[in-house]
Design a binder for these strands. Structure first.
Lengths: 141, 141
DNA sequence: CTTGACCCTGTAGTGACTCCAGGGATTCTA
DNA sequence: TAGAATCCCTGGAGTCACTACAGGGTCAAG
C-alpha cells in the first residue's frame, strides 16, 4: 500500500502520516524500488489506533505509551488506567472552564443590540470596563 | 512603572508582556536611561484588556481587531458583534465535542477493573478493537 | 566589593500538525 | 511517443500563544 492509499483508507492526511513516522509513532515502512513508502496491514491498524486515541484527545506522548503496551502485553495495566484517568480529568477541567466561557460570551453578546458606533457598543464597553477592574457583565458570574 | 511592576499589577508574566510588544498588541513603552521599559497607566489598561479577552479565549488576532475599535470609536460595531458570535460558535462546537469525549472516556474507563496484565485490559482491548473497525464501547454511540 | 534582584536581547522549544519549494516517478490521454 | 496530470520524495518553514534559556548589563543593600 502506498502512502496515498493508506491516507484514503484511514482518512489521515499524507503529511500527517509522514509526521507520525518522523515522530516515531509509526515504524518506517519498507520502500519500493522507486523509494516510495510501502505500507502493510499492521501499519494501517496502528495508524487507526493512533487516530482513535487522538479523537479522544489523548496527547501523542501518551499514545506512544499505549502503543508500547500493545507491544508488550505482559506488563501491568495500571499505567493505562492512570493515563485514561488523567485524560478524563483534563477533559473535565477544560469542560468546566468552557461552560463558564460560554456563559460569559452569551452575557457579553447580549450587551449589543443592533448597529451603532463602536463607542456605544455594549460589548466593547464591557470589555474596557473589565480592563478597568469594574464588574463586567461577563465576569460578574 | 517597570516591567516587573506591571507584571505584578496584572498577573501577566514578564516574558508574555514582551511577547505582546513584539506581536504589536502592546505599544512599545518609553525607555529609562538604563534601557529599562517604562510603562504608564494606559499600558496597564491595555494589557488588562488583552488578558480579559484571552480569558474569554479570544485569539490574539481578534483581540487586535478589538483594540483597533477602541482606538477608533467612530467605526461601526458590526464586526465586534460578528467577532463575539464567531467566538461563541467556536466555544459551543468545542463544548459539544468535549461532552462526547467525556462520555467516551468514562465508558472506556469502565472497561478496566483492578490490576491485571495489559493483554487482558479492557481499555486497551477496546482501543485496539476500534482500530480494527469493530464497535468500541467509547464510539458505539 | 560582592551578592542578589532586576532588566536586556535574541534564539529556540512546545504540540500537532500543515504548507511549500523543488525535485523525481508513474500513469493516462492525444 | 510526447506531454500532462497525478503521485511521491526530502527538507525546511510556518502556525498559535506562549515559555525557557543563554549570556549579558544595572542597581541597591550589606
Amino acid at each position: 500500500m502506498r502512502i496515498g492509499e493508506l491516507s484514503k483508507a484511514t482518512g489521515v492526511d499524507i503529511e500527517t502520516i509522514r509526521y507520525y513516522e518522523k515522530a516515531q509513532l509509526l515504524s518506517a515502512p519498507a520502500r519500493s524500488d522507486n523509494g516510495y513508502r510501502s505500507y502493510n496491514q499492521s501499519h494501517l491498524e496502528r495508524l487507526a489506533f493512533i487516530r482513535h486515541c487522538r479523537a479522544l484527545d489523548i496527547p501523542l506522548a501518551a499514545v506512544q505509551r499505549l502503543l508500547s503496551f500493545i507491544d508488550s502485553p505482559q506488563s501491568d495495566c495500571g499505567e493505562i488506567d492512570h493515563l485514561i484517568d488523567a485524560q478524563l480529568a483534563r477533559v473535565r477541567a477544560r469542560l468546566a472552564s468552557m461552560h463558564a466561557l460560554e456563559r460569559q460570551l452569551v452575557a457579553l453578546r447580549g450587551q449589543c443590540t443592533g448597529p451603532h458606533n463602536a463607542s456605544e457598543c455594549g460589548i466593547l464597553h464591557d470589555l474596557v470596563a473589565a480592563a478597568h477592574g469594574e464588574a463586567c457583565v461577563c465576569h460578574q458570574n
